[in-house]
Design a protein around this nucleic acid. Structure first.
Lengths: 174, 174
DNA sequence: GTCTATAATTTGATAGAC
DNA sequence: GTCTATCAAATTATAGAC
């Protein structure tokens, strides 16, 4: 039995999959509707039917990415658990964090897209800091440091084209 | 008295300045010869006169960035000194690390450009690890962790549009 | 070294048929 | 929901005059 009244169609999900792959590889400026269309086997006008504009598509992809990321972190109880989730994102697909790429470009992004990148980090830093006691400057600092290290480690591993770099950079995280 | 036989002309340097600014804001895919030309007050064909292709310009900019970065780190004797150099790059111009942006996009960059990003991190991790004793797995791990934290902290501060985020994330670095 | 002019391609987006 | 056709703009790059 299919889920009742799905919010997005199957084709829209395919389009978002392709867009996520492209953005995580080349960034927001580095993907086009025509490429996405070719990836999923339709024409670019069909992509526009599902997502009116490029910012709308990118924002939807970032929103979904954040939702999934938070779901994967649902049971994370330690910095080591967080490390594992980031590691999987890097190693399983050999790709950057979507919001890490968007964040690097964030100086020149459509507002709806940079807002989603901001939301990803705001929420994750909040959740991470909860592992370090009640809200305080110290728990926030620790959370920011760990988040920075995880994101930086992904970028380094991708740039140096060596997943082991991530493991080395994130040893002794807590 | 001007320097004898300068390697690059003054106009070429101006072009590189504009390109660096644009890349650090929007990424490699996010800048164009016409924008750079307008920034320095010439036509795009004149930019091509100084730098034949877009990859050549970006690679030259990245090379110069790495040289300057290493010069600024010449007297750095501690992680705290490194922190100060990264902080200045972020705060003084309100911009990302050039090679951090390129690194995030590195999945789809012209080879000559990704090679320069790789070179930046290879050399800097090497130099940083020298602060932690003779070459070893431990000194390399520490250097990778610090480099990841500094780069990630710059990205977070830019995305959240708050320089204080960098300071918070890089407290207790060593 | 800079310009004008232009080529060839790609881009985001829309109109309208089916 | 997908297509064809098309548009206006932007892109990298080159040729050739001054």
């Amino acid at each position: 039995m299919p889920p009742p009244t799905t919010a997005i169609s199957e084709k829209a999900a395919e389009i978002m999959d392709a867009a996520e792959r492209r953005i995580r590889t080349s960034g927001y400026q580095g993907f086009s509707f025509r490429e996405i269309a070719a990836d999923v086997g339709v024409k670019s006008s069909s992509v526009h039917h599902h997502f009116p504009t490029k910012p709308a598509l990118a924002a939807a992809v970032a929103r979904r990415y954040t939702d999934r990321f938070e779901a994967a972190l649902d049971k994370a109880k330690s910095a080591e658990d967080w490390r594992a989730v980031f590691r999987k994102a890097l190693v399983q697909h050999g790709q950057m964090c979507l919001c890490g790429v968007l964040g690097a470009e964030s100086g020149d992004l459509p507002p709806e897209v940079s807002a989603e990148a901001r939301r990803f980090f705001t929420r994750n830093v909040q959740a991470l800091s909860r592992l370090y006691g009640s809200p305080s400057a110290a728990s926030r600092q620790t959370a920011l440091r760990i988040m920075a290290t995880l994101e930086g480690a992904m970028m380094l591993a991708r740039t140096l084209d060596d997943p082991k770099v991530f493991d080395e950079a994130t040893r002794n995280l807590g």
